[in-house]
Design a protein around this nucleic acid. Structure first.
Lengths: 249, 249
DNA sequence: TTCAAAACCATTCAAATTCAACCAAATTAA
DNA sequence: TTAATTTGGTTGAATTTGAATGGTTTTGAA
C-alpha cells in the first residue's frame, strides 16, 4: 500500500473518532506496527495529529482541515531540518527565547517538554500550549502584519527574563553589516533578547546570506548561525567571524 | 483503553454532572481505581477539574472551551446585549482594558476603531486585529486552561498603562464579599487593571449574582455593573452601593 | 465529643503493554 | 543491474497499568 494512501486512511479515521489505537490502524491498513508507528511520527511532525501512548489523538488547537497539503514545499523541508538541529542544542530545564516568525515555529514540535519558553510570537502559543510547555509571553504592542509583539513595553517586559539560549530569524546576514531586519522596532526586541541570552542562534535558509535590510540587530560575531546547503565561498566570508552550522537536507 | 480516551470520557461525564465519583469512572471506563486516580491527578494539574474526596468536581473557573456551544446558544443573546451597551460607553480615542473571558469577547465586534485596547486575553487578539484596532498585550505567564496571561510579570506589565475604562468578567458578585473569581492570580490582575482605570465596569449575566468564588477582586463599590434581567429584590441589595445597569434583552 | 469502622487516598512494585532503535528483507527508482 | 527507500520483525528500554500496602479522612454510633 502506498504511504500516502495509509496516511489518508489514518487521518480519515481520526477525523471520525478523535482517538485511534495503533492496533486499529494495523488492521485498517493491513500493515505492520512498525509502519504505523513511522506514519504517526511523520504525521505528528507535520502537525496533523498528536501521538499519545497507545495511538494518536486529534489535535484540536489546530485547523485539521484540508488546506495544509501544500506545506511540503522545498523550503519547508530545509526549515524543518534547521529547526531540528536547533532543538538538539537545547537541554532539559533550560530557559529559551523563541523569536516570532515562520522559521522558528518549526522548532516547536520537537521541543523537549520540561523547558521554559519565552516568546514574542503570538502565533506560537497554540502549538506551545498543545505541547504542555511552560510559556511566557512578552507584553507590548501587537504588530498586525506579523503578530509579533514589539515596542517600548516589549523591551521593558523582556528585561524580566534571562535565557540560556535564544533562537532568532532575520532577514539579512552580511559579513560587514551583521544581522538585519526591515522593522526598526522588531530589531530592538531581537537585539535585547540576544543580549539576555548566554548563547544566541540565528536560523536562516541560504537566501538570507549577503542580504542587508534596514535595521541592524547585531554584529555577526554576536550569534552562531544555523543554515542549510551553503556555497563554500559564501561560508568562507564568515570564516573566523562566527560559527556556521550547515545542516544538510 | 487509550489514556486520552479515558480523559475525554471523564471530562464528558463531568460536563454533564458537575461531580463524579471514582467508582462511576471505574465502571464507565472499565479500568482500575488506581488508573482513574492517576487520571484525575493529571487532569487536575492541567486545570480541567478539581479533585475532591471521593471523586472530582467541575472547575468553576472556566472550562468553557468545549462547552462554548451550548453556553453560547442560551446566554449568547443576553451577553450580546450587555456587550453592546458596554461598548456604547466607550468614546473615541479612549484607552480601554478588556479582560480575558467569554463575556468580554462579545464586545469586540462593536468596538469603534480609533481606540487603544489593552488585554490579557490571547484569544481576543485575532478579532481585535481583524477590526484594525490598536492592541497591546500584557506580558507574563500563559495560563493553559484559559489562555489568560497572569502572574508576577503580568502585574508588572500592567503598570505601564492607564485606562479610561476597563471591562471585566467575574464569577461571583455579592453585596458583602464583592467581586470574586476562582483563580487567585487572575484576581490580582483584574484588581490592578481596575485600579488603573478611571471607570471600571463588570459585565455579568444574572447567574453571577449572590455567588462567591475563592479569590476576591474588589469591593462592590469599586465598579459599575452591567447585566441583564435582574430580580428587583436582588437589585435592591445593591442599592446605594453601586450602579447597576440592567439591559433588557 | 470520642472512638472505631469504613471509605478513601498516595505510594510502591511487578506485570503487561507500548515504545524507539536497529537490521535485514522487500520494494521501488535510477 | 545497483542504489535508495520502504517495510516488517526483533530487541531492550520506557510507560502504563492493576493490585497490595499502609496512612489519612470521613462516617456514624455511642
Amino acid at each position: 500500500m502506498l504511504e500516502t494512501e495509509r496516511h489518508e486512511k489514518i487521518l480519515q479515521l481520526l477525523k471520525e473518532k478523535n482517538t485511534v489505537k495503533i492496533q486499529e490502524l494495523v488492521e485498517l491498513t493491513s500493515s505492520s506496527e512498525s509502519t504505523i508507528r513511522r506514519d504517526l511520527t511523520v504525521l505528528e511532525k507535520k502537525e496533523y495529529l498528536k501521538r499519545v501512548h497507545g495511538g494518536a489523538a486529534k489535535l484540536q488547537g489546530k485547523l485539521q482541515e484540508p488546506t495544509m497539503n501544500e506545506k511540503s514545499s522545498k523550503n519547508h523541508h530545509a526549515k524543518q531540518k534547521i529547526a531540528q538541529y536547533a532543538v538538539g542544542l537545547i537541554e532539559e530545564g533550560e530557559s529559551i527565547y523563541l523569536d516570532a516568525g515562520s522559521t522558528i515555529v518549526e522548532m516547536i514540535p520537537y521541543l523537549p517538554e520540561n523547558i521554559v519558553v519565552v516568546t514574542n510570537g503570538i502565533t506560537h502559543l497554540p502549538l506551545l500550549l498543545e505541547r504542555n510547555i511552560m510559556t511566557y509571553l512578552i507584553g507590548g504592542f501587537v504588530k498586525p502584519s506579523t503578530n509579533a509583539i514589539i515596542g517600548r513595553d516589549a523591551i521593558a517586559s523582556l528585561e524580566h527574563y534571562r535565557f540560556d539560549k535564544c533562537f532568532m530569524g532575520v532577514n539579512g546576514i552580511h559579513p560587514q553589516f551583521g544581522y538585519t531586519t526591515p522593522d526598526q522596532e522588531e530589531a530592538a526586541v531581537k537585539k535585547l533578547a540576544m543580549s539576555l541570552s548566554r548563547e544566541a542562534y540565528i536560523l536562516a535558509d541560504d537566501s538570507k546570506f549577503s542580504e542587508v535590510a534596514f535595521a541592524k540587530i547585531a554584529d555577526i560575531k554576536t550569534a552562531k548561525i544555523i543554515t542549510n546547503d551553503l556555497d563554500s565561498d559564501i561560508k568562507n566570508q564568515y570564516a573566523g567571524k562566527t560559527d556556521i552550522k550547515v545542516v544538510t537536507a
